[in-house]
Nucleic acid binder design. Structure first.
Length: 442
RNA sequence: CGGUGCGUAGCGCAGCCUGGUAGCGCACUAGUCUGGGGGACUAGGGGUCGUAGGUUCAAAUCCUGCCGCACCGACCA
């Protein structure tokens, strides 16, 4: 991608309405623009990251035999009346009226819709278990949207749903999703802590939140710091025994959101030097709700004995658009964003520091042509001063910058800069290709 | 919804108290110099002062309503 053709407008100063670093940086780097309170337009750079995170989450679901569907954003109200949540959900639900004066709503979540769907298709015990997910825009009319994309009204969420024979099987699905979530956050380079949670209006008995610890977070939570030592990232998710064991091992260590926190239990279970009270951002939330929704939608199956039984279900959400902000919140400095490689909008930032110099310019063009099919390259070919290019590239935050200038070319060198350490390194021209290969592998 | 504050150029702000020609910095356009970390000089362009009404000879400025935005609290991925 050539910056001269891109839709990229960076801001030098922090916009007045932004308070969180992630919000300021997303606006400054030209990732998003606010349309109205809690509703945003995603510009090319922001959308690139959003899609990267979405795809990473999506692919690991599919790899684990959780299949993708796409439910609509607009839902009929009758299914919500069936489950009783039409009124329970309250003012956060945005209601819409069509030309025939039917009440529709912009979906805040999809339990009703998917249970209704599944109740028609799943008939036999042979059809279970089933796991489905989709990544779709949601709308919750928050009392007070804030922090940019972190707590907005329209947001992108990945929500998965499990359908099982009984509690025991459903518990396995829950544990499987639990470990899958640990893997996902690990892949995103985030240190996320699972905590016991209140199930809120979604309802249900078993519930956990996944919290990214940050000083600016909204959620207060408590945990035993030994939970950070648990490694469950390489477990085969089809191995029922291991998955349940790993989950229970994690849950044996105290961790809780403030709503469910039990101070006495915390104190008795955790040694004093390991007791942490911290703030964070909720990036995922999982629920087991038994037969709550299958009852309402008459979602049942026939057992091998010919008996009719209710399906047990659970739901598993990740705030995808929120994660964009969360990743930035966890990875930035005074110059801008520092993307972890896996979610960076581009692999390499190519800077031609001398647009007026043909040697430097020609080399940059060649370099771009050569590597743009192999890596995702953001090439700053604009006719602006070097200082602006350096600052913009730092702000945008791609992990590796390749800096081309006449001085170094005359010595057959090219410069690279690692965004996270700020380290500058001269690489000889004949080594750059292998350098990049090695860099991108790890 | 309660408490607080703010709406003036794309962004950041001054002007309002004490009514009288619409201002500054950045960005933008043109030119000259410059050319490896937001460079300098010169000349420009860009405004329904959130909106509707009121007071006044005269309103960005005073008064009232409305709208929008943000911060603090109760809700949530």
């Amino acid at each position: 991608m050539k910056l001269s053709k891109y839709y990229s407008f960076t801001l030098r100063e922090d916009p007045n309405e932004a308070y969180l670093n992630s919000h300021k940086l997303m606006l400054r780097a030209g990732m998003i623009r606010q349309a109205t309170s809690g509703i945003y337009t995603w510009l090319p750079l922001g959308l690139k990251v959003l899609n990267k995170i979405k795809d990473l989450i999506r692919n690991i679901h599919i790899k684990n035999e959780i299949y993708e569907i796409l439910m609509p954003t607009i839902q009929p109200s009758d299914i919500w009346k069936k489950s009783g949540r039409f009124n329970d959900y309250g003012k956060e639900m945005l209601k819409i009226f069509d030309r025939n004066d039917n009440t529709l709503l912009y979906g805040p979540t999809n339990e009703e819709m998917i249970t209704d769907l599944v109740s028609n298709d799943l008939k036999s015990y042979k059809d279970l278990p089933k796991l489905l997910f989709h990544t779709q825009w949601k709308f919750r009319d928050e009392i007070r949207p804030r922090f940019g994309v972190m707590r907005c009204r329209e947001f992108l969420m990945k929500d998965a749903y499990s359908f099982d024979l009984d509690y025991e099987n459903s518990y396995f699905s829950y544990c499987k999703m639990f470990i899958l979530y640990m893997k996902i956050f690990n892949l995103l380079g985030l240190n996320v802590i699972p905590v016991k949670a209140d199930s809120g209006p979604i309802g249900g008995a078993l519930s956990h939140e996944f919290i990214l610890e940050t000083s600016n977070g909204e959620t207060l939570f408590f945990y035993d710091k030994t939970i950070l030592d648990k490694d469950c990232y390489n477990i085969n998710l089809n191995d029922k025994e291991l998955v349940i064991k790993a989950t229970e091992d994690l849950l044996s260590v105290y961790s809780s959101s403030s709503e469910t926190h039990d101070e006495a239990l915390f104190k008795s279970k955790t040694s004093p030097q390991n007791q942490i009270c911290s703030k964070g951002i909720e990036v995922g939330h999982i629920f087991y709700f038994g037969t709550k929704y299958s009852e309402a939608f008459d979602a049942n199956y026939i057992t091998s004995n010919g008996e009719k039984k209710l399906i047990h279900s659970g739901s598993y959400g990740i705030g995808v658009s929120r994660l964009v902000a969360a990743v930035i919140e966890a990875n930035n400095d005074d110059k801008g964003i520092i993307w972890p490689k896996q979610v960076s909008p581009y692999d390499l930032g190519l800077i031609n520091v001398r647009f007026d110099n043909s040697k430097s310019k020609d080399f940059s063009e060649e370099f771009y042509k050569k590597f743009t099919n192999k890596y995702e390259v953001i090439y700053d070919d604009r006719e602006v001063r070097a200082g602006k290019k350096f600052n913009d590239m730092d702000l945008i935050g791609v992990p590796l910058q390749v800096i081309v200038g006449e001085k170094n070319l005359l010595n057959s060198n090219i410069e690279v800069k690692h965004r996270n350490t700020g380290k500058l390194q001269l690489i000889s021209l004949d080594k750059i290709e292998s350098y990049l290969e090695k860099y991108c592998e790890c």
